[in-house]
Structures are given as structure tokens and as C-alpha cells.
Amino acid sequence: MGELFASYNILGAFGLTILLAVFSAIGSLLIGTVVAIMRVSPIDFLNKVGAFYVNIVRNTPLTLIIVFCNIGFIVNLGMSFTNDIARNNIIWAIIGLSFYHAAFVCEALRSGVNTVPVGQAEAARSIGLTFSQSLSEVLLPQAFRGAITPLGNTLIALTKNTTVATAIGVAEISGLMKEMMEFRADLIIVIFLLVAIGFVILTLPIGILTTRLSTKLAVKR
């Protein structure tokens, strides 16, 4: 196993996996919150746009989205952030992962919004808060607390889904795994276990943390 670590940059590849996961998590939380706000807003047009987004993106395979980010945006439309091809692919992978998981974040948040009794919004409106103030002060803080567990699920899925980025040549851990297995067929089981355990180490804390938070921050009614 020592020789694996010596001849392959396993930690570096896991580092890239973490980088993809962290930035995509931030991106998907931001985009997902915006879409969720659209879906709960009183404006019919925004509802429809939000619903359309979720239903299209959620039901499209992630590989398709990631590959489209490369072939569609980079190759066909020439939308590049930098001349460094590897970095460009990483950035587009993060964008693809963010927009894909935003649909799930939106639905997790919406399930959180449903845990907030109607009376909370009525009370917020009746003291004169505007729609956006009601959202930011009363509804979303409670919705986030109610959505912690499903959000945790989404983040775990996101972490594992970063492996799809290998489809456009991002050198994260699953790409390296394929490479290692090809050259060290004698160690296939070790390599597989190494990567699998690596993912468990990454995702287990997310589950533990969100379970703790969901009980700790639960809104008592």
C-alpha cells in the first residue's frame, strides 16, 4: 500500500474531490436557496420558472450535465475562464455539480418550509414585515432547521457525485482509481477499498454533523 501512495498522488486526488465537493456545496446551497425562494414566492411566474428548473435539472443524468458543461460550454460555445485546460474543466465541473444539486437543495428546503406552520408567516406579515423580510427573518431560518437532514443527504450525494467529473478529465479520485487499477491489477481490491474508505471518511462526518445539528437546532413548538 505504501508503494501506491509513493507512486500515485492519492491524497492530491482526494484533495481535488474535496475541493469539488466544497465549492459545489456552496454553489448548490446558494442557487438552491434562490430557486426555493422562487418556488415559495407569491409570484406565479417565479413559481413556474422554479418548478421548471427543478423538474428539468433533477431529472437529467448528472453525467449528461457534466459532459455538456465540457462539450457544450467549453468546446462549442468557447466559454472558458482560463487557458489552463485542467482548471477550466474543474471550474465547469463545479458549475455543473452546483446547478444539478441546487435542484435537490431546493426541494430539501421546500420540505423544510413545509415544516413551518402558516401562522408563523401570518404573524410575520401582520407585524409589517415585507415578503423578503418574512423570508429572511422567520421562514428560512426555520426552514433551514427543518431541512438539515435532507440537506445532509444531498451533500453526501454531492460528495460522491463529484466522481462524475472524471468524465471531463478532472483528475479527482475516481479517475486516479481507474488509472491505478489499470497499472496495478494485483492490488485491485486494495485500491477499491482505499477509495471506498476514503469516501466514507469524507461523507460520514456530514451525516453525523447534520444529525446532531438537526436535533440541536430543532425548532421547539
Binding site: 406552520p117 401562522g119 408563523q120 401570518e122 404573524a123 410575520a124 427573518e137 422567520v138 431560518p141 426555520q142 432547521r145 425548532v219 421547539k220 413548538r221
Partner: peptide, 9 residues
Amino acid sequence: FQSFNLFAH
């Protein structure tokens, strides 16, 4: 309100 509706958080 009948059900108070204090902001729970």
C-alpha cells in the same frame, strides 16, 4: 392570533 404564533426560533 388564536394560536399565538410567536416566532418559534
